[in-house]
Design a binder for these strands. Sequence first.
DNA 1: GAGTGAATGCAAAAGCTTCTCATCTATTGG
DNA 2: CCAATAGATGAGAAGCTTTTGCATTCACTC
Lengths: 143, 143
Amino acid sequence: MEDQEIRKAGLKVTVPRVKILELLETSPERHVSAEDVYKMLLAAGEEIGLATVYRVLTQFEAAGLVEKHHFEDGYSVFELNKGKHHDHIICVTCGRVEEFVDETIEKRQRIIAEELGFQISEHELVIYGKCLDKNCDCKKRGD
Amino acid sequence: MEDQEIRKAGLKVTVPRVKILELLETSPERHVSAEDVYKMLLAAGEEIGLATVYRVLTQFEAAGLVEKHHFEDGYSVFELNKGKHHDHIICVTCGRVEEFVDETIEKRQRIIAEELGFQISEHELVIYGKCLDKNCDCKKRGD
DNA sequence: GAGTGAATGCAAAAGCTTCTCATCTATTGG
DNA sequence: CCAATAGATGAGAAGCTTTTGCATTCACTC
């Protein structure tokens, strides 16, 4: 299970690494900060230091197991790498994050980069807006 | 000149504000960090505190005079608001920033937001890549 | 030109993230 | 199964960017 992925990444299979990977795979919220992970581990009764959480997430990122994003709040969020690229749309009211992929946008980006003489290594598109879903928690709470 | 814009923003016309706005208008690099601004002011012989630079830039942003962006390096960069929205492509080698606008991408974003039930307030698209321009400083330096 | 509310500078503090280092642990070979 | 060792961890210190508190100074109004 998780052990193999960690081993494949060239890392020793340790309790913190297994627990963090497990947590990323089972968390209801895919996009979590290091602090979130730390708190969830504490809540689950795991004694794992915040520094370790940062180290492990960084290693997982280097190994391609997770992706790191910089949304507008100043801290980073991590998510399990599902293998397929996608962009994000975030509700400025409730913070809900939705993912999407649009081949038209992807294609235009490649064309633009070429026109400007760049060789794309990656890109990050984030749309901010208000989610209009009546059933969203932020509507029920009225914030 | 600058005085009017500052006054229009509902702010008193002070030396720090005028100097910072001047600097943003004349700087060869459009995208600057607070630290950059601070250092440029020092270099120009101005005695303006870093805290003031942050405060002024934040006020300018609130007033719509400048825009703040979060690229991948952990700190924020500011640029003069020219009025028309644009996205960025950044060279991961030399840090050069180019701006672009693509109506196709803009349109797709509006459609995606609508489909997902969001009302767009803003968005940020950043493409990272290597610039292939032989004349770019980063090529000449060979980094 | 005086009065007042806002702006500034400095230092301290606050977030997030990384580093240091002593201690502990997973892995390997015997 | 155990010892040796390279690597991992935890706790706190430190680093960076950004914000805040407060006494002082300044811009605008009358």
